[in-house]
Design a protein around this nucleic acid. Structure first.
Lengths: 382, 382
DNA sequence: TTACATTGGTGCATCGATACACCACTTCTG
DNA sequence: CAGAAGTGGTGTATCGATGCACCAATGTAA
């Protein structure tokens, strides 16, 4: 909650009347309002409101008691709508993600919602499918709905079009997108170090002796993907392996959401395997791509990671399924829970004294989808 | 996306002017209100409201024009909050699911949100973790927030505790839970035929020659799971295979959400494999369980489905990953998109003339996680 | 000329909660 | 004992949109 101290909040979960005592008048009647409570407790609505909002410092204990009991007995719950209209503060956080059909974003959404619940906030879900127009449309709609806090799972290079909103007070947290020069002031970014992530993944494969390493991604025109690709190139360079453009596959089509990312991974690896000199290993932009790539390998009769002939695959994110996949996926873990918590903290705190942007450390999780390049292969390309 | 057409516009009702010229005053000022529009157009707020709400039958074309232009030039967007306070109608649908971390519910949530968008509705996301108390708490909270339409992905046997809400006008759609005798009137159910699903899965394994068939589920005290188990038993009975209690594993602990369902599947199969006579095949309650079970098989050094020694595994849902898994999962498909659409239709239509509950047909999708029982095994238990 | 429609639009109470200004009353304090 | 300080509340305007009741002005029938 943006406010400093937590009000006594008679209505909050802890003190909330047990469901059993709550009476929801069955007679289709209107809801219980603050005025009903007031007249039941023989005080003014203001007093009830004061208690509700922690302004009860100089309230007589007996009064406090009476009001609390009235609230309980009537099963009163303040109208969020009225409160919001009056205060301008919405107890709602907008969550814009590419698609919760992707388990990474699904897990994220679930964590965010759980965190939000802790301060009585609700979460409005928006699936942008990585379409900038939709992304913008959602923000507009959220703003019009009085939502002043948004977590934006985006990686659009420029967030300049959102400046009008941040300037008017939108608390915006960009997730999975490192802070860029020229970003609107006040924008908080929470992201993993994507360059390092790409580097780690590639280095891992290099360490295993691979030299022809592919890179599979969706549309590359996003911050995080660009950074990961840069990390890939840096690792190659450090190992004195030539970067070959044709080993990088990225989705030619646009506007493909994350729901279909496995499909893209499949297409990607299928394409790379058709090369005259196909890669012996690939780095993929996320675990769904990796899983799609595994399926493509299977389609092509190739084992993952394979003993003699085969292909090593590294994912990104470390979604739940990564460990359960067959083979268990080697991947780059994002500290999802920490990131979600950080995002929520950024929203909780007032603008200004809030936390700065953060870049968290990715972590290589080596499992079984990667293996040492076969000796025969090593001889061919030392 | 499964949907036919894409909405042209995130925001506007048909009458609303285009947003292209919208100016969001950069000067941190308050939002544009209906009064600003009114004075700009030199009419009363009522007139603007009338136009906005289609009460413009007897309005002079010139006036209409002036107002429309003012709306455009000021970039006016009506406040959802104020509107809702006044009308009581929220443009919001509550979506309560076990956990969007589970890809099945993630896909569902995404589809629901996409459908909701078509009538300018927003979706409030709630993850119940299958905890009845949370489920109820969410409904209360949603009601207090003015939400009058809820899609509840539950399978609680009794929804009686929600009767007070439905009686006061909550439009409630139960998803993944067949209609029960004694359900509140007006409750619409959308579900797959779970009994048949359980039957199909089991029959498939029986057809492959299996006789010791396990069943792995979470807490069984839910409608859909109970029905699936009943289908399993019916199939066994029809094939004259004895039902053995010890082959049915269900989560002893309570309150486990769907985020951890793979973990439960893993535990389940691990337990069943420790039996003196372990099953040669298992039916699992959903694909995440199936994936967990595959991991357990791998842990135990067992192949899926295996040639000689091995175990066949059937899932449920047919999530995206099912086909991409290794081996591709045999599973029972739920027509998710159809079900989501139906749920939304139920919400769209007025109570009374709305659609009745529906039970949709599940479909066996036989892939590679199931195989014929080995000849040697068949000799042992004919 | 009066009665009464019709057209085109406005006034205002209202939804429910909030928070600031203010008040009546008691208790100190010099 | 006047005036200040403190106690325990209340009155009321307000957030922005809505929609019913109403009104002024013109047309039109008896």
């Amino acid at each position: 909650m943006p406010r400093g101290r937590t009000p006594t909040r008679v209505s909050a979960p802890a003190t909330r009347p047990s469901v059993s005592t709550q009476r929801v008048s069955a007679s289709g009647g209107a809801s219980v309002t603050i005025r009903d409570v007031a007249s039941a407790a023989k005080v003014s609505p203001s007093t009830v409101s004061n208690l509700l909002n922690g302004r009860d410092a100089r309230m007589h204990p007996r009064t406090r008691e009476r009001v609390a009991r009235a609230i309980n007995e009537l099963g009163y719950r303040p109208s969020r709508v009225a409160r919001q209209l009056r205060t301008g503060r919405a107890q709602v956080i907008g969550l814009v993600v590419p698609s919760v059909a992707n388990p990474f974003w699904g897990s994220f959404a679930r964590t965010v919602e759980a965190e939000a619940l802790r301060d009585q906030h609700q979460v409005l879900l928006c699936n942008s499918e990585r379409d900038p127009a939709r992304e913008h449309g959602y923000i507009e709609e959220l703003w019009a709905g009085g939502v002043r806090s948004v977590i934006l799972g985006t990686s659009l290079p420029s967030l300049d079009h959102l400046r009008p909103f941040t300037e008017r007070g939108l608390r915006l947290v960009a997730f999975d997108r490192e802070r860029q020069a020229g970003d609107p002031p006040g924008l908080v970014s929470v992201s993993v170090d994507n360059h390092r992530g790409g580097y780690l993944a590639t280095q891992h494969l290099l360490d295993l002796g691979h030299r022809r390493i592919g890179f599979i991604s969706g549309a590359i025109a996003t911050v995080s993907r660009g950074r990961r690709l840069a990390g890939y190139r840096a690792a190659l360079a450090d190992a004195r392996v030539r970067y070959r453009r044709q080993l990088v596959w990225s989705n030619p089509g646009k506007g493909f959401g994350d729901g279909e990312s496995a499909e893209l991974g499949r297409q990607g690896l299928t394409a790379l395997l058709r090369l005259a000199e196909p890669p012996t290993a690939v780095v993929t932009i996320n675990d769904m791509y990796a899983i799609g790539a595994c399926a493509a390998a299977r389609d092509a009769g190739l084992a993952v990671p394979g003993r003699g002939r085969g292909i090593s695959i590294v994912g990104f994110d470390d979604i739940t399924i990564a460990e359960l996949y067959n083979p268990p996926l080697s991947t780059i873990r994002q500290p999802l829970a920490d990131m979600a918590r950080f995002a929520l903290d950024a929203i909780r705190t007032q603008a200004g004294d809030g936390p700065e942007s953060t870049v968290m450390a990715p972590q290589l999780v080596a499992r079984a989808s990667t293996a040492r390049r076969s000796a025969r292969e090593e001889k061919k390309v030392p």
